[in-house]
């Protein structure tokens, strides 16, 4: 059984490590420092931490100002309130002004759990993906989160980083190379391509294994960077397997599924099934209950992939 760790823990640890190395790194929060674990950064670097209170728009604007002032700010808040409420601030003060701000959306996906619909971010990737110049990163687990934080720091330009609150299995490996914009190929197969993002990599691995037992060999691509998306990796795999399933802990509208659909339709039109949440709001529940509720599970991935393979054989 894989070790479980909350992505926010990896985020917090990486932030502190980078904080020791780089004087210009500053952190902002909007009254969720304990929940977002930015309070540990505050303990170590009190001068370089700014809690602006419950005001996401001001948070993003202040971060942009700090960037103009020569700092590299990480602006933290719950993903929904950040991407929804402060969208225009990201658009004008961050992206259009081309300020080097790192936007960190916490409580991602089902990890908002029992907080319910208002707190469950299922549209944040879609919103962030639409902003010119914004890089969108959705790590799979705590270990990959650490690499993502580092990459975001060194990346010149606006970044949106999606961070989950609750423990999930660590499924990536230390030696996996993390490069912004590059997909990671985790499994080779000729029958179907499974493309996942974020914490769905775990269920995707399980599905690939189950499919293998049934004689269906899946190509598994992990897309940690939704934008810019790795067109070449997706098109190459699709050209080989001729059918694709996307898996995300986010609405199928505007997220990974949409991004892959755009790539396929222009570069390699093959059948695609998108697994994610439908056009709806969330509910309250434990994280594992929500993953069941939304059917973000290996069983559905397996069934969907099988059906795709079967339908192709019938033809």
């Amino acid at each position: 059984m894989a070790v479980q760790k909350a992505p926010r823990e990896g985020f917090s640890e990486a932030l502190i490590r980078l904080g020791h190395q780089h004087e210009d790194l500053v952190v902002l929060d909007a009254d969720c420092a304990k929940s977002n674990m930015t309070n540990f950064f505050k303990d170590q670097f009190p001068n370089r931490f700014f809690n602006v209170g419950i005001s996401e728009c001001d948070l993003v604007g202040t971060a942009a100002g700090l960037a103009i002032g020569g700092k590299i700010p990480f602006a933290n808040a719950y993903a929904n309130f950040l991407t929804g409420r402060a969208y225009d601030q990201m658009r004008i003060s961050v992206c259009y002004s081309n300020n080097n701000v790192k936007i960190v959306g916490h409580n991602a996906g089902t990890s908002a759990a029992q907080e319910g619909a208002t707190h469950l971010p299922l549209e944040d990737i879609s919103l962030m993906r639409s902003l010119p110049r914004m890089t969108v990163i959705v790590p799979a687990d705590s270990l990959e989160m650490e690499k993502a934080v580092e990459a975001a720091y060194y990346h010149e330009g606006p970044v949106y980083l999606r961070v989950g609150k609750l423990p999930v299995p660590i499924v990536t490996k230390k030696e996996d190379r993390f490069q912004i914009g590059k997909a990671i190929k985790y499994r080779d197969g000729n029958d179907v391509t499974l493309i996942s993002t974020g914490i769905m990599l775990d269920e995707t691995f399980k599905a690939a294994e189950a499919l293998g037992k049934k004689g269906i060999q899946a190509d598994v691509l992990h897309i940690h960077t939704i934008k810019p998306i790795d067109v070449e990796a997706i098109a190459t795999s699709a050209a080989k397997t001729k059918r694709v399933v996307t898996i995300e802990e986010h609405s199928i509208i505007g997220g990974l599924g949409s991004a892959v659909a755009e790539v396929l339709s222009e570069h390699c039109p093959v059948p695609l099934k998108r697994i994610g949440t439908q056009d709806r709001f969330g509910v309250s529940g434990k994280m594992h209950e929500l993953l069941d509720f939304f059917e973000l599970r290996a069983a559905r991935i397996t069934a969907t992939a099988e059906k795709l393979v079967d339908s192709a054989l019938i033809k």
Binding site: R48, G61, A64, G65, L66, I68, G69, Q89
Partner: peptide
């Protein structure tokens, strides 16, 4: 120093620069 035109955003920017200046 920054793009504007969507109203209400300038003071936050000024605050950020002022914080950075104080830090330095």
């Amino acid at each position: 120093d920054a793009s504007s035109g969507s109203l209400g955003q300038g003071l936050s920017l000024a605050n950020g620069v002022a914080m950075a200046a104080k830090l330095d």
